[in-house]
């Protein structure tokens, strides 16, 4: 079992959990249309809820590359669902760093897992990237795309160059908190059932 190259089984695991993570993201994403402030609170919601499938995923990761591939898949999904390609390099970068951190703990150390998941969660922030980089054009696009002016104003009040740092930190922190939460859930349900 100490084979370091990824086998078909690993790729299947990656695909499966990416699908689950996307479902979580999508469900949370739907809430964003209630109010733009909810869009900003993705940094709290998604890392927390996503931690449950992700901690299960981390318990199955044994080799380098799985987390990176997951981030590539996420970047592809984000593109296909219309979130743009600007955030893609950031998503993949956060995945790669997360993978390296987890690797340094040999994919066993829980402390490294927490840190790794915190970094991995930053992919949520990567989706704000187009909002910040091309704020003005994005606003025009939203307005002509049928979003109300009120929504746009609130959106840019919540997400701009000043708040992004706070959002990134929040994202990281809630990623770490989520890791503990997810671990507890996994322990409660899956370890008892003998799945992990």
């Amino acid at each position: 079992m100490n084979n370091q190259t990824l086998a078909a089984k690993d790729f299947i695991t990656v695909g499966l959990f990416t699908a689950l993570l996307f479902v979580v993201e999508f469900a949370c994403g739907m809430l964003g249309y209630l109010h733009p402030y909810v869009v900003a609170s993705y940094v709290i919601l998604i890392p927390l809820v996503g931690a449950i499938p992700m901690m299960l995923f981390y318990s199955k990761v044994e080799k380098f590359g799985m987390i990176t591939i997951m981030s590539i898949l996420l970047a592809i999904i984000m593109f296909v669902t219309g979130m743009g390609y600007l955030g893609a390099p950031l998503i993949i970068l956060s995945g790669l760093i997360a993978d390296l951190i987890a690797k340094s703990g040999n994919y066993k150390s829980f402390r490294k897992t927490v840190l790794s998941y915190g970094i991995f969660s930053l992919w949520v922030c990567a989706n704000y990237f187009p909002v910040i980089v091309s704020a003005k054009a994005y606003r025009e696009d939203l307005l002509s795309g049928g979003f109300s002016a009120e929504y746009c104003d609130a959106l840019f009040r919540a997400i701009n160059t000043k708040t992004i740092l706070i959002l990134v930190i929040l994202c990281f922190v809630f990623g770490c908190i989520g890791a503990f939460l997810g671990k507890a859930v996994v322990k409660k349900h899956f370890e008892k059932a003998g799945i992990v």
Partner: peptide, 11 residues
Amino acid sequence: PDGLAISLAVL
């Protein structure tokens, strides 16, 4: 690459 293709297919 096969790995990416498999993951994508499963996804």
